[in-house]
């Protein structure tokens, strides 16, 4: 196998680990790291989306606001959660929770785990793009600390729709991409079978994002991946969240929001 081929194969292994069916999902982390989590429901407009969940929880002595993409474990739960692909209602529920977090000064902890926003006719009719864009604005200006942790797949605008924050943390075997490799292969190569090459070209692993200066920290997983030891994965994630939250809480709000603006402003800046 050529050098490029083996690099691509290693990248694909990361993609498969990020999607491993036994991998801990958002609620596994939430219950392990926080206490008192109370899931709130509904966007107050149309419905309740089970692909994005959220609500307040206790983290040490403070209350934080959880916003998370949740995949299903069993066949019926997968269907109920729409395979972690949210409709506009999920993003609007998240927006409601962002507003509430600002009102009560709860830091936000977002768990990203989706292959993307749901590509459906109803999602388009109810303005999925509008819902995501509104969240980008709201999160970029929210006057509370925001930690984003990618636990599995970070898929495109659907991930970013709850993923704008002050720190981007990634589990060791998580991925984050402008497009899923299959979609990229079918668009650029017109051949979905080229997904392995696409995955390598997209630079989507946690290590790639760290190298690109987009991810702040890679959280180590147990040997072989987080699916092998939920407790160990959650302990590492919890410790990182605690440490980053503490440092963000020491920053005055105006400066926090300005630094968050500059954090994104710098990406791709020419001067």
């Amino acid at each position: 196998m050529s050098d490029n081929g083996s690099v691509a194969a290693a990248t694909w292994e990361q993609v498969e680990l990020a999607r491993h069916p036994d991998r801990p999902y958002a609620l596994d982390y939430v219950h392990a790291i926080f206490s008192n989590f109370l899931e709130l429901h509904g966007d107050r407009v149309f419905g309740d989306d089970h692909a994005i969940i959220g609500g307040p929880a206790s983290f040490d002595s403070r209350t934080i606001m959880v916003i998370a993409q949740q995949k299903g474990r069993s066949t019926s739960e997968r269907a109920m959660r729409n395979f972690g692909m949210a409709n506009p209602e999920g993003y609007r529920k998240a927006l409601r929770l962002v507003r509430q977090a600002e009102r009560f000064k709860f830091p936000i902890v977002a768990f990203v785990d989706t292959s993307g926003a749901f590509p459906g006719a109803g999602a388009e009719e109810r303005g999925i793009a509008w819902a995501i864009a509104e969240n980008l604005v709201a999160l970029s200006a929210a006057r509370v600390p925001i930690l984003t942790l990618v636990i599995g797949e970070g898929g495109s605008g659907g991930a970013l729709g709850i993923g704008v924050g002050d720190r981007l943390l990634m589990m060791e075997h998580s991925i984050y991409s402008v497009a899923m490799p299959e979609a990229c292969a079918s668009i650029l190569w017109r051949d979905i079978a080229r997904k392995v090459e696409a995955a390598e070209a997209l630079k989507l692993t946690a290590a790639d994002l760290k190298r690109l200066g987009l991810a702040d920290e890679i959280i180590p997983e147990p040997p072989g991946g987080a699916q092998n030891d939920y407790g160990q994965a959650a302990d590492a994630a919890g410790a990182a969240l605690r440490r980053h939250l503490k440092s963000l809480e020491a920053i005055a709000t105006d400066r926090l929001v300005e630094e968050r603006y500059q954090r994104y402003r710098r990406i791709g800046a020419t001067s």
Binding site: A133, L136, S140, G157, V178, C184, L188, L209, R265, I267
Partner: peptide
Amino acid sequence: GARMQEGMLALMQLAKTSAALGR
């Protein structure tokens, strides 16, 4: 949409432009 050939650097432009419009 976002330019795939620039990967995550392209995706982050969604956040950058939206944040500027928020201001």
